[in-house]
Amino acid sequence: QVATSTVRILGMTCQSCVKSIEDRISNLKGIISMKVSLEQGSATVKYVPSVVCLQQVCHQIGDMGFEASIAE
């Protein structure tokens, strides 16, 4: 089973930030795809909930120095 959710990301300033986040999160087990939008300050994450949760994704992004939260 696959889920798609949006994560809000604060602190991104350039495409390099976007690429860094996409590269790191895409390597997590259970992540199918991730598309980060600098303009919208968010990311669309396609993932397998039984393998990885959005809290883990937000935590990983937080470790990179950005502020991440699950969009309502």
Rank of each mutant, 00 (worst) to 15 (best):
Q1M: 06
Q1R: 07
Q1K: 12
V2N: 04
V2S: 10
V2F: 11
V2T: 15
V2L: 07
A3P: 02
A3Y: 15
A3W: 15
A3M: 14
T4R: 07
T4I: 13
T4Q: 08
T4M: 12
T4D: 04
T4E: 11
T4P: 02
T4K: 07
S5V: 13
S5R: 13
S5F: 07
S5M: 12
T6C: 11
T6S: 09
T6R: 14
T6A: 05
V7S: 00
V7C: 12
V7N: 00
V7R: 00
V7G: 00
V7K: 00
V7Q: 00
R8L: 09
R8M: 10
R8D: 07
R8E: 06
R8Y: 13
I9Q: 00
I9P: 02
I9K: 00
L10D: 07
L10F: 14
L10T: 11
G11Y: 06
G11C: 06
G11N: 05
G11L: 06
G11W: 06
G11D: 02
M12D: 00
M12S: 00
M12T: 01
M12H: 00
T13Y: 15
T13P: 00
T13W: 15
C14Y: 03
C14V: 03
C14H: 03
C14R: 02
C14G: 05
C14E: 02
Q15H: 13
Q15N: 10
Q15L: 13
Q15T: 08
S16A: 12
S16I: 13
S16E: 12
S16D: 13
C17Y: 05
C17P: 03
C17A: 05
C17E: 13
C17M: 05
C17D: 15
C17T: 04
C17W: 05
C17I: 05
C17R: 03
V18K: 08
V18D: 00
V18Y: 04
V18W: 06
V18C: 04
K19L: 09
K19G: 05
K19S: 09
S20H: 08
S20V: 09
S20M: 15
S20T: 12
S20W: 07
S20Y: 06
S20I: 10
I21P: 02
I21C: 04
I21K: 01
I21W: 04
I21S: 01
E22A: 06
E22L: 07
E22F: 08
E22I: 08
D23V: 11
D23K: 11
D23C: 06
D23E: 12
D23Y: 11
D23P: 01
D23I: 10
D23M: 12
R24F: 07
R24W: 06
R24D: 03
R24E: 10
R24S: 10
R24G: 09
R24Y: 06
R24I: 07
I25E: 00
I25Q: 00
S26C: 08
S26D: 02
S26R: 11
S26K: 10
N27G: 12
N27E: 11
L28S: 03
L28M: 13
L28H: 02
L28W: 06
L28P: 00
K29V: 11
K29Y: 14
K29P: 12
K29D: 12
K29L: 12
K29M: 11
G30Y: 05
G30C: 08
G30L: 07
G30H: 03
G30F: 08
G30T: 05
I31M: 03
I31N: 00
I31T: 01
I31R: 02
I31F: 04
I31G: 00
I32Q: 02
I32V: 10
I32R: 04
I32C: 05
I32T: 02
S33M: 09
S33H: 09
S33L: 08
M34R: 00
M34C: 10
M34V: 14
M34G: 00
K35M: 07
K35I: 08
K35H: 10
K35W: 07
K35L: 07
V36P: 00
V36A: 04
V36R: 01
V36W: 04
V36L: 04
S37C: 09
S37A: 06
S37W: 08
S37R: 09
S37Q: 07
S37E: 06
L38Y: 09
L38K: 02
L38E: 01
L38S: 01
L38W: 06
E39V: 10
E39W: 09
E39M: 10
E39N: 08
E39H: 11
Q40V: 07
Q40L: 13
Q40P: 04
Q40F: 13
Q40N: 13
G41F: 08
S42K: 12
S42I: 13
S42F: 11
S42A: 10
S42D: 08
S42W: 08
S42N: 11
A43C: 05
A43I: 06
A43M: 08
A43H: 02
A43Q: 03
T44M: 12
T44A: 09
T44K: 11
T44F: 12
V45G: 02
V45K: 02
V45F: 06
V45E: 02
V45P: 01
K46D: 05
K46E: 15
K46G: 04
K46Q: 15
K46F: 13
Y47W: 08
Y47M: 02
V48K: 09
V48M: 15
V48I: 13
P49K: 06
P49R: 08
P49T: 08
P49L: 07
P49F: 09
P49S: 07
S50I: 06
S50D: 14
S50C: 05
S50E: 15
S50A: 12
S50N: 07
S50T: 10
V51E: 13
V51A: 06
V52K: 01
V52D: 01
V52Q: 03
V52F: 04
C53D: 11
C53H: 11
C53Y: 06
C53M: 10
L54T: 01
L54Q: 00
L54I: 14
Q55F: 12
Q55W: 15
Q56A: 12
Q56P: 01
Q56F: 15
Q56H: 11
V57N: 02
V57F: 03
V57W: 04
V57D: 00
C58R: 10
H59P: 02
H59G: 11
H59K: 15
Q60P: 02
Q60R: 08
Q60W: 13
Q60E: 15
Q60M: 15
I61P: 01
I61T: 03
I61F: 04
I61G: 03
I61L: 10
I61M: 04
I61Q: 03
G62L: 12
G62T: 14
G62Y: 13
G62V: 14
G62Q: 15
G62I: 15
G62N: 15
D63H: 15
D63M: 15
D63N: 12
D63R: 14
D63T: 14
M64A: 05
M64F: 04
M64H: 01
M64C: 03
G65Q: 03
G65K: 02
G65Y: 05
G65M: 04
G65N: 03
F66L: 03
F66I: 02
F66C: 03
F66H: 01
F66W: 04
F66N: 01
E67S: 13
E67T: 11
E67A: 11
E67G: 07
E67V: 13
E67N: 11
E67F: 14
A68H: 03
A68S: 05
A68V: 12
A68D: 03
A68W: 08
S69T: 12
S69G: 06
S69F: 14
I70D: 04
I70A: 08
I70L: 10
I70Q: 05
I70W: 08
I70G: 04
I70M: 08
I70Y: 14
A71V: 13
A71H: 07
A71N: 12
A71R: 07
A71Q: 13
E72G: 11
E72K: 08
E72N: 10
E72T: 13
E72M: 09
E72Y: 13
